[in-house]
Nucleic acid binder design. Sequence first.
DNA 1: ACAAGTACTTACCCAATGGTATGTTCAACT
DNA 2: AGTTGAACATACCATTGGGTAAGTACTTGT
Lengths: 133, 133
Amino acid sequence: MANIKETSVIQENKSNAFAACPVTFVVERIGGYWKPIILFNLLAGTRRYHELRKAVPGITEKVLIQQLKQLEADQLVTRISKPVVPPYVTYELSPQGKALRPVLLAMAEWAVGHGGAQSEQFEKQLADFPGEE
Amino acid sequence: MANIKETSVIQENKSNAFAACPVTFVVERIGGYWKPIILFNLLAGTRRYHELRKAVPGITEKVLIQQLKQLEADQLVTRISKPVVPPYVTYELSPQGKALRPVLLAMAEWAVGHGGAQSEQFEKQLADFPGEE
DNA sequence: ACAAGTACTTACCCAATGGTATGTTCAACT
DNA sequence: AGTTGAACATACCATTGGGTAAGTACTTGT
């Protein structure tokens, strides 16, 4: 019987930081590579699962589902499933998720300002971005 | 000789997403757990290495250095080293880094609004947060 | 009868992130 | 001569995020 490892010091440390720093609180929820991107897409409105797949290029099904589940568990998105065949499932931002709009828009604007060669493209993307619903 | 793996498809996919989505552009630079937290601390002003260690609880030296190097490589922070002994090294936000202020503040404000039990604490933190320099 | 489409699930794998622990350099202090 | 302190570097390990590939359930279209 090898090392058993009691509850991991790391998690405790993270909880400490979590308690102290508001940014940490946010990172714990929308950190990682894909979550902000998914949220940004949902900001534009309710999307079916399949639509999200197309809207977020490069993401795989597994990861998309995985991230959606986590976002759902953190109550940032709401999953609505109609019991029909073929399945009809949509995802949309919860009120908490919608409250992230300023964060995501601030990100997008920074990208416009500091995206170098991409800036123009980003600007176009933002131009036809839907406002509040 | 086993599979050699040419340049990784993943990176290509990421570059695609990167090209299309402004939020992806940002995530590529300040994604991960620690970077936003470090940037948030630097937002309050120039800090010595040792000060950062204390300001960011739970981070280890290795990871702190690592993240600082990456931020420096991405030109979000500037490292200033005085050639004295003992070493005197400070880190501060570059202009690009300072431009992230709205992003980080938006995060902090979201935390205040949605931090549940922690909200009050976050609010205090933000109250004595320095403004623009 | 069979392919197609939708929204997943499962099993397996790799690479990056992050953590622990220790070493280094140089000078001032004791 | 040994310790201390700043700002790292390095070696090694564990965890996690993310990727690939395949399978599932159920119905509609051909």
